[in-house]
Amino acid sequence: MSDSPVITQGAMEAAHHEHPPYQRHHFETIGQQNDATNFAMWLFLLTEIMFFGGLFTAYLILRNWYYPAFVAASHQLNIVWGSANTAVLITSSFTMAMGVWCAETRRKSGLVLCLVLTFLLGLVFLGIKSIEYSEKIEKHHVPGFHYSIQSFVDPASDPVAAAYGDKPLALDMARKTELYFFLYFAMTGMHALHMIIGIAILGFMIFRARAGAYTMGHVTFVENFGLYWHFVDIVWIFLFPLLYLISRHQ
């Protein structure tokens, strides 16, 4: 039998088009390549939603079960640092979005500036986070490592808890604060891990952007990284009220 009857003209003309060097050989057009990678990035973000989804589910259930413990424990978080971090992250999202715009409009120095700012703001976020973590370590609020329920059975001994006017929790309920702190560390830690990965990629991108790699018309990488960075921002947009704010008043 001879070769394929189905195969007809079609690819022949495409083969004669000029292909930019960044077009991978198995795509017909650069538009197809950009669409495909963009869609792949969105699908990857779907898996990220579900990954964090498991933690959010655990948080909702346990918060409903041990409401007083979660309220008292959340009072230990510092709203000032939390709000500052929210602002930092939103600003980094903004600089990232501007970076994408600079790449799209082929502004090389603008792109490098935006990426450097995003990089620095990411580091500031992690710096503030580490200050918050070290507060928790000092007060033995890290679950599993010499966890102490002192602040919750005797709030008067803890200036933060005293400032909120917390009432002492029964021993049984006070122990449940450890679950809150575990979820706090798991969720913010997983978020910070995503930040660290993002910052590492940003470092690589700054290097490449200085060489002009993203301002020659091929901006998919910057755009897709932008999607990732904004996603990380969105996770924080939900973590901030859930962990810091919603129990402030009780």
């Binding site: 898996t47 579900m50 990954f51 989804g53 498991g54 575990f182 979820l183």
Partner: peptide, 22 residues
């Protein structure tokens, strides 16, 4: 679906190593 399995297994590993309690 798979990411939810991933997080469940991460929590099991953390439960065994750190004793998180979830």
């Amino acid at each position: 679906g798979t990411p939810v399995l991933a997080i469940a297994l991460v929590l099991v590993v953390l439960e065994r190593t750190v004793g998180i309690g979830v």
